[in-house]
């Protein structure tokens, strides 16, 4: 546990030395602010963040891979993986630490958008229940994308490839599972629909906390973290 936290802490602090991280931060805040102005902060709109949350789930498709792309691939490229993997720590600790470090940075990034909630509160009386569940859901979506990104970054030492591979895998869970159900027989389309991230997130933005949504995100995170551990193990045998 302490090893996992040590890796996560190092990962988190190294983000603040990376120009890409600052770019991501700027881009994310700018887009969130823009969508906030366009969809939430307008006369006649209800005082809720739901419309913004809808768009943020889409923004995460770019933001999270940009954070996760360097997690393991940078260690592979620079060779520090050798010092790391010859320390008395396990592959599981490495992967968990990397994922957690990335997620911590993402949560910090997300926390900055609380300023938008503050602005909303200045002009109206928002219902904080759905705001809370909406953010909880975003953390789960971010956690899932971060797990996918961690897996992708074990596969290559090239950050760009890790970035694109992560986006590709996320698109399978968002765009493809959105259009695919229309082409499938009904009994299959329900299953494909279940895999859609946006669909699973929808309840959170409405203020609902459903166990089945939790199961979806937690098992998705677990699946990709296990894949990442396996991929890291298999690197040695090549």
């Amino acid at each position: 546990m302490s090893n996992t936290l040590a890796i996560a802490r190092r990962e988190l602090s190294s983000f603040f030395f990376s120009p890409i991280a600052y770019l991501v931060m700027c881009g994310f805040l700018m887009l969130s602010g823009l969508f906030f102005m366009l969809t939430v902060f307008a006369t006649g709109q209800p005082a809720e963040m739901r419309n913004l949350f809808f768009w943020m789930v889409w923004i995460l498709i770019i933001v999270v891979p940009a954070i996760s792309m360097r997690l393991v691939s940078e260690e592979l490229r620079s060779g520090t993986i050798e010092s790391l993997m010859t320390s008395p720590i396990s592959d599981v600790q490495v992967i968990l630490g990397k994922w957690l470090g990335g997620l911590m940075f993402f949560v910090a990034l997300l926390a900055t958008t609380l300023s938008l909630v503050f602005v909303l509160a200045l002009w109206s009386q928002p219902d904080y229940g759905p705001v809370f569940t909406g953010y909880l859901g975003l953390i789960l979506v971010g956690g899932l994308y971060m797990a996918i990104g961690t897996f992708a970054s074990v596969l290559t030492r090239n950050q760009i490839i890790a970035f694109l591979l992560t986006i590709f895998l996320i698109l399978l869970l968002t765009v493809v599972t959105y259009f695919l159900p229309r082409l499938l027989p009904p009994e299959w389309s329900a299953a494909a629909y279940y895999l859609n991230v946006n669909e699973q997130y929808d309840d959170f933005s409405k203020g609902l906390i459903d166990t089945s949504n939790f199961v979806y995100f937690i098992s998705g995170i677990a699946l990709f973290l296990v894949l990442a551990v396996k991929a890291l193990e298999s690197r040695k045998w090549r």
């Binding site: 040590a6 030395f17 320390s87």
Partner: peptide, 19 residues
């Protein structure tokens, strides 16, 4: 291979922790 963004003391503490 070392982490270029870390300070020497930080790098040593980090690996000390892993050990």
């Amino acid at each position: 291979p070392l982490y270029p963004e870390m300070r020497v003391r930080e790098q040593l503490h980090y690996f000390g922790r892993l050990h």
